[in-house]
């Protein structure tokens, strides 16, 4: 028995979430009294692999060729073969676009129950019960998994990073892969911009801002804080901001350390996307806006006055 953690790489590099996943996998493995293995597919720098050792993998499996394009069938075959090799009873993914697309494939291959978007260790191992938020984050469900093998996906920025050095020997796997059915025709991507889904600080604004011409101060505030920018759904529907910034139940579900909501009323569908944030701050001119029910801190006031002052105050020290 073992725990296998699948680590996605982004252009050959690992993100902070990889360290969260390893920390989580290691805690699971320790509780089960088994080893944790990591798996990385595609080309990665060797010093990147080296950096993973600090988080406790017994071995780091790699396979380099054939993973240039994310073809779910190819990746799922590779991951389940690695899982079978080490008799993994638990496979852990990151809950993101890639993890979501792969976890279901791997779960079916391994005949494993899948619980997605978990944020903590299981409540119990025998029977195996783990909590996850359901009904768009309104309540926790305790999910009992009846299969011997389990597949989990862990939400970003929810599990603490714990250093815990492991042997971390790198081993190249030889795998039997299917032929890819997906082909990338073109890629359109900006690099260097802080992504909403990676950000620990998020500045988000809603219809209270009146129009796209007023986003200058939002971007400036985000820049001063080193935050990513988000928005409410009507703002992206109106085309004031790109769809990738839409936060909420039907947009991005995020859990930053700080979520600053400016001129956002706090509709239940919006709150469904931010309720796991560590700290929510609201700036709204309406003292009865529902956002204040979920906020930790707030200012009742006009965003056009408060935001510039906030920028000045933050620039001070």
């Amino acid at each position: 028995m073992s725990v296998l953690v699948y680590l996605e790489n982004w252009d050959g590099k690992f993100k902070k979430v990889s360290h969260e996943l390893l920390s989580y996998g290691k805690s699971l493995a320790d509780k089960m009294g088994v080893s944790m293995f990591a798996l990385s597919l595609g080309a990665v720098d060797s010093n990147e692999l080296e950096s993973l050792k600090a988080f406790g993998p017994e071995k780091i499996f790699i396979a380099t060729n054939g993973f240039e394009t994310l073809d779910n069938e190819v990746f799922a075959a590779a991951i389940s073969q690695a899982a079978e090799k080490e008799d993994a009873s638990m496979v852990v993914f990151s809950q993101d676009n890639v993890g979501n697309a792969l976890a279901g494939h791997v779960a079916v291959k391994l005949k494993a129950g899948l619980v997605s978007a978990v944020s903590a260790l299981p409540v119990s191992f025998d029977p195996f019960i783990i909590k996850k938020k359901i009904y768009t984050n309104k309540v926790y469900g305790h999910v009992k998994v009846n299969t011997d093998k389990k597949v989990l996906s862990l939400s970003k920025n929810t599990y603490e990073i714990i250093e815990n050095p492991g042997a971390g020997e790198v081993e190249e796997l030889s795998l039997d892969l299917p032929v890819a059915k997906t082909k990338v025709e073109s890629v359109d991507k900006v690099t260097g911009k802080l992504l909403l889904t990676d950000a620990e600080l998020v500045v988000s604004a809603g219809r209270g801002l009146k129009g796209p011409e007023n986003w200058g101060m939002i971007e400036e505030l985000a820049q001063v804080l080193g935050a990513a920018t988000g928005c409410s759904r009507p703002v992206s529907d109106e085309g004031w901001r790109p769809h990738t910034e839409h936060v909420g139940q039907t947009g991005k579900i995020i859990a930053p350390n700080l979520y600053l909501a400016i001129g956002i009323s706090g509709a239940i569908q919006h709150v469904g996307g931010i309720s796991n944030s560590k700290c929510i701050v609201a700036i709204n001119k309406d003292p009865d806006a529902p956002i204040f029910e979920v906020a930790d801190y707030g200012i009742v006031g006009d965003a056009f006055k408060v935001v510039p002052e906030l920028i000045n105050e933050l620039k001070k020290a």
Binding site: H142, V143, K144
Partner: peptide, 21 residues
Amino acid sequence: YTEIVEIELPKAKSAVKLFDA
């Protein structure tokens, strides 16, 4: 493979701390 065996309500949030504008 999986079943929900219990529903747990999230902890009530402590009241918002407001600052003057």
